[in-house]
Design a binder for these strands. Structure first.
Lengths: 202, 202
DNA sequence: ATCCAGTCTGAAACTTGTTCTAGATTAGCG
DNA sequence: CGCTAATCTAGAACAAGTTTCAGACTGGAT
């Protein structure tokens, strides 16, 4: 389950892969400073030592770029979490722990988190495939924490609700309308759904 | 409970109130056609017969304008819902019904919904007060449906989670990544938290 | 009625995302 | 090696959000 599958329409050459990487790096770098607005396409291009037109060939819009940045970061987080899986009695606890751990990771770079999450929720239909990928990774993280291989439809719904809550709570925190304590409480509240939707082993 | 309180820093004259109304109307009108991108400030100004600078005096950004538009629409919806409160045995059912009713109302103008919700989640700190107002109205709608006067902190958390889910599910539907059926299921799932967090009358 | 401060208008200017173009470079191929 | 198609670059140009400014207008105080 290395989950590194890329559709890879045309396989990229080495230099192209390097360019792509430079671009994503520049994007994350700039985002880590001023957040969404600081990621200016001209600056990304310059920092990545790439022409503006090339940047747009790799990522057809600023939103695409930031969503791809999020994919990248989430991938990292997923493997990191894999190394130290949450210890806990029940699934709800483990999921809540995992999400709060992710949350603290994002706290370390709040501007980056801001840029990525704002892009994610602002994305329109043209970015659906990429947003879907992010969603799949998030789902995988949560299911991992739950320790489930074959979730029921009910459980999948609960997982989606948890994801919704996570994104939205993140936004309210990032825009200063909710405290970290409140986010924690709400995450724990939504995780109760895991118990509620657990299939009775009858 | 007419809930018409406006901080109203400087009380607006009649003509100013009329301008404000024309602007909001133009905004909703344009949004109903092409959604977020169709709400172009120059066009709003023209349709509202107001100079561009004036538009910006009333609403300091496109996001402010659209969030204000949402406030306006939500207010309508709240009063409409008041007239025909949901009938149902338990609170969870009533809340789910209410939200799905709101959902169907938004479905009638998907482009408008798109513009408003995208603006809402994209809003940064400078729009926090306005976004908070929207959140308060939404909370009021949900608490009304629950029939609660004095919710416990636990219940308030559940309500926030429901709001998170509502916004986020709306977005996934608007961007074509979830079906209406799925939204319905997820709304019903999250509403289970209402039962779970109901205080035991012991 | 007159005057002042605040408001509104029309238009230009500025910013940043996005598109376009002409010419250089690169990659793969015979 | 030499050719061709794809890719990359630099830079101009365009679009829409936002800011700015000079002058006209309005509403209220004297």
């Amino acid at each position: 389950m290395t989950a590194e599958a890329k559709p890879a329409s045309p396989p990229l050459t080495e230099r192209q892969e390097a360019r792509r990487r430079r671009i994503l790096h520049a994007s994350a770098q700039l985002a880590s400073r001023g957040g969404f607005e600081a990621v200016q396409m001209r600056e990304v291009a310059e920092a990545a030592e790439v022409a503006l037109g090339t940047l747009y060939r790799y990522f057809p819009s600023k939103i695409h770029l930031l969503v791809a940045t999020m994919q990248d970061q989430l991938q990292h987080m997923h493997t990191t979490l894999h190394k130290r899986p949450p210890a806990g009695d029940d699934a709800a606890q483990r999921v809540a722990d995992t999400l709060m751990r992710a949350f603290r990771a994002l706290q370390r770079e709040p501007h980056l988190a801001d840029a990525m999450v704002r892009a994610l929720t602002f994305a329109d239909r043209s970015v659906s495939p990429e947003v879907d990928t992010v969603s799949r990774i998030t789902t995988a993280i949560i299911l991992d924490a739950m320790g489930l291989e074959h979730p029921t439809p009910e459980q999948l719904s609960a997982v989606r609700v948890i994801e919704h809550t996570w994104h939205s709570a993140l936004i309210t925190w990032l825009s200063g309308r909710a405290s970290i304590a409140q986010v924690k409480i709400d995450i724990e509240t939504v995780c109760r759904l895991i118990d509620v939707t657990a299939p009775r082993d009858a």
